[in-house]
Simulated assay, not measured.
Amino acid sequence: MKLLMIEDNVSVCTMIEMFFMKEKIDATFVHDGLEGFETFGKDDWDIVIIDLMLPSMDGMTICHKIRETSDVPIIILTAKESESDQVLGLEIGADDYVTKPFSPLTLMARIKAVTRRKGQSQSVKAAEDDDILETTYFKISKKTREIYYEGKLLEALTPKEFDLLYFLMQHPRQVFSREQLLEQVWGYQFYGDERTVDVHIKRLRKKIATEEHPFLHTIWGVGYKFDETE
């Protein structure tokens, strides 16, 4: 795994570096925002970790610029009290966030969760018929990670948006709680991060929902479901 971490706190990078080495992660550390963004463009990365408070170019700007050209998994690092930053980061395309201060084990768990499903999708050897999911309005390929709505390719879906929509489409009209979606789609148990699910549902609605066909429904007090019939 090739990982780029843009973090200006050298002591944080030093602390986490030994864990990356243990997990056989090829990590590159950059301590300046603009330099980090330029470094991103020079190579192919499996995951990018971005602190929001950076010199030269802030983490929000980097995340937004990366999303203009790439669907690489992104984890943002935020201050514990900065809830608005966490939500905004998710809205502009981050796949997950970790609040400071954090333990290396927590960060490693999130890295594995974010990259696990993308890696699995790339290694799928299923037959073509098993790889295509079709509904009344959608056709989705797990192998190519493409979703077509009424024959038109949906572009600019992040990896987690794809995973979330695919999972819900696999279980039409079945209601899932936020906790269940975190476990099934993100790969970790519920730690109070339900806004992660809420923001991804919100982003998906902007990209696929119409007034006539909302597709993604909120069941108040329970969770969410995918339903084309309502």
Rank of each mutant, 00 (worst) to 15 (best):
Q170K: 11
I25G: 02
N9Q: 09
E17H: 11
D130P: 04
Y97W: 09
F37L: 15
K152P: 02
F138N: 14
T218S: 14
Y148R: 15
K139R: 15
L164W: 03
R116L: 05
E179P: 05
D46H: 14
Q174I: 15
Y166E: 00
C63P: 00
E134K: 15
T78F: 00
E91G: 10
T106D: 06
S70H: 02
R117Q: 08
K80F: 07
K207R: 14
T210W: 02
A27H: 03
G187L: 02
W45C: 13
Q174C: 11
W186L: 01
R173C: 09
I47F: 06
T106F: 03
K42G: 08
K24L: 10
K142V: 14
G221T: 05
T99C: 10
F226I: 08
R195F: 05
Q122R: 14
V175Q: 04
R205T: 07
S11E: 15
S123M: 09
V199M: 11
R117F: 14
Y188S: 01
K143A: 15
L52M: 15
L204Y: 02
V10Q: 12
M108H: 00
D163K: 01
F190R: 03
E161G: 00
S121T: 02
I16Y: 13
Y224G: 00
R145F: 07
A209Q: 09
D51C: 05
R195G: 04
L133K: 08
F190S: 01
S11H: 13
T196P: 05
E38K: 13
G33A: 11
V48S: 10
T106S: 01
V72C: 12
D85T: 06
L168F: 04
T78L: 05
I66F: 08
M5N: 09
S70N: 06
S82P: 06
C63S: 00
T14D: 14
L181A: 10
Q180K: 11
V199C: 11
D58K: 13
I75V: 10
V30G: 03
D198T: 13
G151V: 09
K100A: 02
D96K: 02
M57Q: 11
W45I: 13
M21W: 07
E81L: 05
H217F: 06
R203N: 15
G221N: 03
I62S: 02
P159G: 05
D85E: 07
M57N: 01
T135C: 11
D130C: 12
A94F: 01
I74D: 07
D198S: 13
Q174L: 10
E212H: 01
Y148D: 08
Y149T: 02
R117K: 14
E230Y: 13
G223Y: 11
K112C: 01
I132F: 09
G221P: 06
